[in-house]
Simulated assay, not measured.
Amino acid sequence: MDFDWDDLRLFLAVARLGGLSAATETTGLSAPTLGRRLAALEAAMGEALFRRSQSGYALTPAGEDLLARADEVEAAMLALKRWKDGAMGARTVRVSAGAWTSAFLASHVGEIWSVEDKFGLELVTANEKIDIGRRNADIGIRNQRPTEPYLAGRRVGTVAYGLYSGRQLINGVAAGYFVGLAGSGAPQTQSARWLQARHADRIAVRGNDAMSVRELVANGAGLSVFPCFVGDADPRLIRIAPLITELETEQWLVCHHEERHHPAVRAVTERIAILLNRYGSLFSGHDPQGAS
């Protein structure tokens, strides 16, 4: 069969992120449209590529085989793009991080990119690690030291977590209920797993993305767990208990050991390091007022 690169791109997005809903943000397509495109790809290949369940999409052996080959195609396409960008004097630096960290970077974009830069910036939001080795991102912000031999890591701080409520003790908050995360993203976040393990019987309301959970908590639906750099910076939320020490993680800036020397990648890496260092007390939970 003849492969359409766009179909392979969609397949890669779902395979890496583990479900349709997570891939909607990176592909720009709705979940039903993604589902139809993947079903058509499977029909054309004559075998299933995914095992579908309520917890997400898992690759079949055929899917694993296609993933390995599609990775190679993508690497070649990225190399062509970078060759073209280089010929035109332009480059896009891709930064991968979780939803909250990506939102933090977006809110401080002026400190990591400007119109005077000779390169573009792309934020790649995902709960799972993006493969930097295959150049799916240039820079990753991770919660642990990289173990891959081709990656270089730099610790930039710690991330603390706390239990938060809205400032008005109404509705679920007054009743002592919790707000949880629903959908394919829930098993991929340590805070959601912690909440489910300890308070599953008290989770009365759920949202299918992190931002929805924050809005629910801020408006009195119940209590939930957030990174301190999220909860402490939101004036609608209040931390109601000591830090959850078992959820504390390290924060690492990760690059490919060769790409880190590219001027554009080096510039963005240094700017992000400076930014995260400046807000270090907020990330570590020692700035309860969320001051800048």
Rank of each mutant, 00 (worst) to 15 (best):
G46C: 03
V159R: 10
Q251G: 10
A174C: 05
S53A: 15
G18R: 04
A79E: 15
A87I: 06
P146T: 03
G98V: 13
E248Y: 08
L195N: 04
A90K: 05
L253R: 04
H261M: 02
A106M: 14
A76I: 02
L276W: 08
R52W: 05
Y57T: 00
S191M: 13
S281T: 13
L10C: 10
R37T: 03
E111D: 13
A106Q: 14
D85P: 00
R82V: 04
F226C: 05
L169N: 07
P149G: 05
R16M: 14
L17K: 14
I112W: 08
S55G: 04
D65A: 14
G98R: 10
A200G: 03
G222L: 04
G19A: 02
A204V: 10
A152Y: 12
E148C: 01
A267M: 08
A39T: 07
A97W: 07
S96A: 15
V225A: 02
L49Q: 00
S212D: 03
G176R: 01
A87Y: 02
G166R: 09
S53R: 11
K118S: 13
V225M: 07
G180C: 01
G18K: 06
A43C: 03
R206W: 09
L243W: 07
L121F: 09
E47V: 05
G231I: 13
D2P: 11
A48Q: 07
V95D: 08
Y164V: 09
A103W: 07
G220P: 03
V95T: 01
T92Q: 05
L169I: 10
A218S: 10
A43W: 04
R167P: 00
P32L: 10
G180L: 01
Q251E: 14
G18Y: 08
S53T: 12
S191L: 08
E258W: 09
I238N: 00
L121T: 04
R266W: 07
S224P: 00
L276F: 12
W83R: 11
A218N: 02
E250G: 15
A43K: 15
L243H: 07
L80F: 12
I238C: 08
M45A: 13
G110N: 12
L80M: 13
L29M: 13
G157A: 09
T33N: 01
A79F: 14
P61F: 02
L276I: 14
R36Y: 09
P242W: 01
D131Q: 06
S184V: 15
Q54P: 06
Y164T: 11
G157D: 06
W194T: 04
R16D: 14
T60M: 01
A126I: 07
R69P: 00
I272G: 05
L20Q: 03
A13P: 13
L49D: 03
V156G: 08
R52S: 06
L66E: 05
A197M: 05
I141Q: 04
E270C: 02
T26N: 00
G222A: 10
D234S: 06
N127Q: 14
G231M: 02
Q190R: 10
T24I: 06
R135S: 12
L163N: 03
Y177S: 15
V230S: 03
S281W: 10
G222C: 05
E246P: 13
L123P: 02
L282Y: 03
S55K: 13
H257L: 12
